[in-house]
Amino acid sequence: MSDRAAAARILAPSDALTVETVRAVRHWNDHLFSFTITRPSSFRFRSGEFVMIGLPGERRPLLRAYSIASPAWAEELELLSIKVPDGPLTAQLQRIEPGDQLFLGRKPTGTLVADALLPGRRLFLLSTGTGLAPFMSLVRDPDIYERFNQIVLVHSVRQVSDLAYRTELESHLAGDPLVQDQALLQLSYLPTVTRERFRTTGRIDALIEDGTLFGPPLRGPKAFDPEIDRVMMCGSMTMIRSLAARFESSGFAEGSNAAPGQYVIERAFVG
């Protein structure tokens, strides 16, 4: 029996953690993977929130916050992760297999949720790397299509193989049981790659500057408008801080669960 399998047999739930079983693992490339786990019947979350995921440690569980990539209605929970060879948790987590067990926090939370935004017409989801995860949750939730007429999901990565869920997004979530019809009409996907040849290159700020972000099929102003536009950002701290300053100077106010605004970030990840 492997060390991992042996550890799985002795996992025990606590007041803060449940023990869940890995259902599937998908390796996108040598440094990116996603996995699904069982979902407790008592586990409730809003699409876009994050939760603690972990494995046993020497003295206490090794835990890390992960945005949930599956929508609130899904029967299983899906997570997206990088592979860090010497990372305390990810060095082990990247080797999980179906049937293994891990810890799941009982209390999801977060601000990358529709409730933290004021009503609007266009929603921009700006992500880098694994910051895509909460937006995969949101675009697979029917509620977001009722709140916004147009949704633009931007995913900036270094390599083409880092474009997780690219096939699903390019098909406008075709085959999704709840949102395929709405996504076909309302969802736009703009992937961009910064270190390899691709049809769109450049960082998100460059796509804003040259107008690429506002190209067809997007309708409306060719710039951000605080009256009609709402923005969510997740990923690189450099990207978030730079664009947050841009939005603040353009009249956008940051929102929260207590006071909705025109843009939101996940402060638990930014600090």
Rank of each mutant, 00 (worst) to 15 (best):
S2Q: 15
A5P: 06
A8E: 10
I10T: 11
L11S: 02
A16P: 04
L17Y: 01
T18R: 14
V19R: 05
R23G: 01
V25K: 00
D30N: 13
L32G: 02
S34T: 04
T36E: 10
T38F: 04
T38W: 02
P40M: 04
S41M: 10
S42Y: 04
S42G: 04
R44G: 09
G48C: 09
E49M: 10
F50P: 06
V51T: 14
I53N: 00
I53D: 05
E58C: 00
R59C: 08
A69S: 13
S70R: 02
A72R: 04
A72C: 12
A72H: 00
A72K: 03
A74R: 06
E75H: 14
E75G: 14
E76A: 05
E78P: 00
S81D: 12
G87I: 02
T90G: 08
A91E: 15
Q92C: 12
L93I: 09
Q94I: 13
Q94R: 14
Q94S: 14
R95S: 15
I96D: 07
P98S: 12
Q101A: 14
L102E: 11
L102H: 11
F103K: 01
L104K: 00
K107L: 09
P108A: 07
T109E: 11
A114N: 07
A114T: 12
A114Y: 05
P119G: 12
G120S: 08
G120I: 07
G120N: 08
R122K: 09
R122V: 06
L123C: 00
L123T: 00
L126I: 08
T130A: 07
G131D: 01
A133L: 12
P134V: 14
P134S: 13
F135C: 06
M136P: 00
M136A: 09
V139S: 08
V139L: 11
D141A: 09
F148V: 03
F148Y: 06
Q150G: 11
I151K: 02
I151G: 03
V152Q: 03
H155M: 08
V157G: 04
V160N: 02
D162H: 06
L163N: 01
L163C: 05
L169N: 01
L169E: 07
H172P: 05
L173H: 02
A174P: 07
P177V: 07
L178F: 13
D181E: 15
Q182S: 12
A183N: 05
A183P: 10
Q186Y: 02
Q186V: 01
L190W: 01
L190G: 00
P191G: 04
R199V: 01
T200S: 08
T201S: 07
G202L: 02
I204S: 02
I204R: 03
D205T: 15
L207C: 12
G211I: 12
F214V: 00
R219L: 15
P221W: 11
P221R: 15
K222R: 15
A223T: 15
A223N: 14
F224T: 04
D225V: 03
P226Y: 05
R230Q: 10
V231N: 02
M233S: 06
C234L: 04
G235M: 04
M237F: 10
T238V: 14
T238D: 13
M239D: 03
I240R: 05
L243F: 10
L243Y: 06
A244D: 05
A245H: 12
R246P: 07
E248T: 11
S249T: 15
A253Q: 13
G255I: 06
G255V: 07
S256M: 05
S256T: 11
N257T: 09
A258S: 11
G261N: 09
V264T: 05
I265V: 15
F269D: 03
